[in-house]
Computed example of a mutant assay.
Amino acid sequence: MTRVMVVEDDEDLRVAVAAKLRAEGLRVDAAHDIATADDALRGGHYDCVVFDRMLPDGDAIDYVRARRLQGWGVPVLFLTARDSLADRVAGFEHGGDDYLVKPFSVAELSARVANLCRRSGGRPSVLRHADLEMDCARREVRRDGVLLTLSDKEFAVLEYLLARADHAVGRAELIEHCWDSGADPMSNVVDVVVKRLRRKLREPELIHTLRGRGYLLGTP
């Protein structure tokens, strides 16, 4: 599942942006300052980061510039009230991939984030295994040519398993990549979604349970 970090100290704006991106099927984590974001960014994979420029603990440009020098390649979209040409140029010169001036349309931000995420993945837009085909760009899944109707969560779990076909994927790993950070790792949400997926994918079974290891899409 595509994962995005939103770093914004204005709580109302942070909540609105996160809600819109989640509605588009993205996994979203949020932070109010650079230090909190840094802990998360160093501990997990992200496809895009939305950074407000001026945060309580500094200018995000300084953080991004320093991380770029370390080889960090995650696409960054800067948000800012600074609308001068010099400010926009500085954003691009110091590691930004896109720049959006406040006030802005949340729909436009969502479209820009989607574009950056597509750039970052380097993953094929179509995933296949046996007679199963997933078009990630169109968000369509077919089994033996038949179009299937999946929920956003079912699509995210199947996409993750397909990208790792013939490899065991643990429940905790699926929680980490397909649910928001508040999900309870001890709950049975993964089992419920996988059960629904198996029913929709029909026979012969593609998703197998490996005792003590999780799930495998492919031949056990």
Results as ranks from 00 to 15, higher is better:
65 R>W: 06
127 L>P: 02
212 G>P: 10
160 Y>F: 10
135 D>L: 04
192 V>Y: 04
216 L>Y: 00
198 R>Q: 14
144 D>N: 14
19 A>H: 10
33 D>I: 03
39 D>M: 04
214 G>M: 05
217 L>P: 07
112 R>I: 10
154 E>P: 01
193 V>W: 00
96 G>T: 08
60 A>H: 07
146 V>F: 08
189 V>P: 01
38 D>V: 05
29 D>K: 01
47 D>G: 13
220 P>K: 12
132 L>E: 08
72 W>F: 14
220 P>L: 11
139 R>Q: 14
59 D>Y: 01
113 V>I: 07
128 R>Y: 01
136 C>D: 07
29 D>S: 13
137 A>K: 06
101 V>S: 15
73 G>K: 15
158 L>H: 04
43 G>S: 15
124 P>G: 14
122 G>Y: 04
192 V>F: 09
120 S>I: 08
138 R>S: 09
55 L>D: 12
46 Y>N: 09
107 A>E: 15
178 C>T: 04
46 Y>M: 03
56 P>F: 12
213 R>K: 15
148 L>M: 13
56 P>Y: 11
63 Y>A: 13
207 I>G: 05
176 E>I: 00
182 G>K: 02
200 K>P: 04
92 F>N: 12
82 R>T: 00
69 L>T: 09
211 R>K: 13
14 R>A: 10
31 A>W: 09
161 L>A: 04
124 P>N: 13
196 R>N: 06
193 V>Q: 14
50 V>I: 13
198 R>A: 00
89 V>Q: 15
20 K>G: 04
177 H>N: 13
125 S>E: 14
20 K>V: 14
89 V>E: 15
41 L>G: 04
13 L>S: 07
134 M>S: 11
184 D>R: 01
38 D>H: 08
53 R>P: 00
80 T>K: 10
210 L>Y: 06
148 L>C: 02
100 L>G: 02
210 L>A: 11
174 L>V: 11
92 F>S: 11
117 C>M: 13
29 D>R: 12
196 R>V: 00
142 R>L: 01
114 A>E: 14
218 G>N: 06
4 V>A: 09
147 L>H: 07
193 V>G: 01
179 W>L: 06
197 L>F: 00
70 Q>H: 05
67 R>N: 12
188 N>I: 05
90 A>V: 02
206 L>I: 02
25 G>F: 05
57 D>T: 11
48 C>A: 15
169 V>D: 01
13 L>R: 11
32 H>F: 04
197 L>P: 03
58 G>D: 14
166 D>G: 07
178 C>N: 05
157 V>L: 14
46 Y>T: 09
125 S>M: 02
28 V>H: 06
82 R>N: 14
204 P>R: 14
151 S>N: 04
125 S>N: 12
55 L>E: 14
44 G>H: 10
152 D>V: 08
183 A>Y: 01
11 E>T: 12
211 R>C: 01
131 D>C: 01
191 D>T: 05
197 L>I: 00
136 C>Y: 03
7 V>A: 10
213 R>S: 15
30 A>L: 05
117 C>N: 05
45 H>Q: 09
79 L>K: 03
194 V>I: 14
160 Y>A: 09
149 T>S: 12
26 L>C: 05
217 L>W: 00
124 P>A: 12
22 R>L: 08
148 L>A: 04
109 L>M: 13
208 H>S: 03
206 L>Y: 02
177 H>C: 03
110 S>L: 10
40 A>V: 08
194 V>C: 00
36 T>R: 13
1 M>R: 11
184 D>H: 04
